[in-house]
């Protein structure tokens, strides 16, 4: 366990929205090629933490961050860090599927195009990404159809394909299944487990069963603080903290 590479880490991170203290002294590490689940009641800061790893807060006014967020040896918030480059290495899948209002093909091709992937390679990459995301069979005959006509589950898998097409090192997932039916959820969970061997995945979820099904590690957050982290089994079956125990047993949240 200990010789596993630390892919992402946060060191004494504090974050404020205006005068609201949202993240309080976060110290945390995420290991490579593992799925880590962030759990905790609504408003505990888990999505905020997730989004600070690819600087999605950059466009919001009134956000203040202290402490260090690291992608391996690179300081994410360092002045010379290219945010564009960073986001290519740290991909993101959002809570609500947000395909571009373009064709299915173009949804994946767009990221390749702006990142200067040579034209002749793109068709192959698009197909590979769609296959990896288990949506190829469903859409291979209608790649030019608007992505917005797909079902919710298909849209979310397309968004995952869009992310993996760029070969990021980390994939952040912000409650990717919260808007989906159980069958689509199951498909995406299988996909997450398959992707684990190539990527480091952090997933925010409200669903305790989901965390247990997909995550190697689990982090429990409460009111902006990390209360407990460890192996998923330990967190759910042997919590050290009473608060964690109450939460995972569904006593609040």
């Amino acid at each position: 366990m200990t010789n596993d590479l630390i892919k992402l880490s946060a060191q004494s991170v504090n974050l404020w929205f205006g005068s609201k203290h949202v993240l309080k002294n976060i110290n945390i590490e995420f290991q490579q090629n593992k799925v880590t689940a962030l759990i905790g009641p609504s408003g505990c800061g888990k999505s905020t933490l997730l989004r600070s790893f690819n600087r999605m807060h950059d466009l919001l006014p009134d956000v203040r961050i202290e402490g260090k967020l690291m992608l391996e040896q690179q300081d994410i918030y360092e002045k010379n860090t290219s945010v564009t480059q960073l986001r290519r290495r740290v991909g993101m899948v959002f809570q609500k599927a947000n395909p571009f209002p373009k064709s299915i093909y173009e949804n994946i091709n767009y990221g390749l195009k702006i990142n200067d992937v040579p034209k002749e390679e793109r068709d192959g990459i698009v197909e590979k990404a769609l296959r990896e995301s288990y949506i190829w069979e469903e859409v291979k005959d209608e790649l030019q159809k608007p992505a917005t006509r797909l079902s919710g589950g298909q849209q979310q898998r397309l968004c995952i394909a869009r992310t993996v097409a760029l070969r990021p090192e980390v994939i952040l997932m912000d409650e990717p299944c919260s808007a989906l039916d159980p069958l689509s959820t199951l498909k995406i969970e299988e996909l997450i487990i398959k992707l684990k061997k190539d990527y480091t995945i952090i997933i925010v979820t409200h669903n305790m069963q989901q965390a247990q099904r997909v995550a190697d590690k689990t982090v429990f957050m409460y009111l902006g603080e990390v209360i407990e982290m460890g192996n998923t089994d330990d967190i759910f079956n042997n919590p050290k903290n009473e608060l964690t125990g109450n939460y995972v047993k569904g006593r609040f949240g």
């Binding site: 290219s82 945010v83 564009t84 480059q85 702006i114 200067d116």
Partner: peptide
């Protein structure tokens, strides 16, 4: 275009 050029 490389990333630096795009960001500029």
């Amino acid at each position: 275009m490389n990333i630096a050029a795009r960001e500029n």
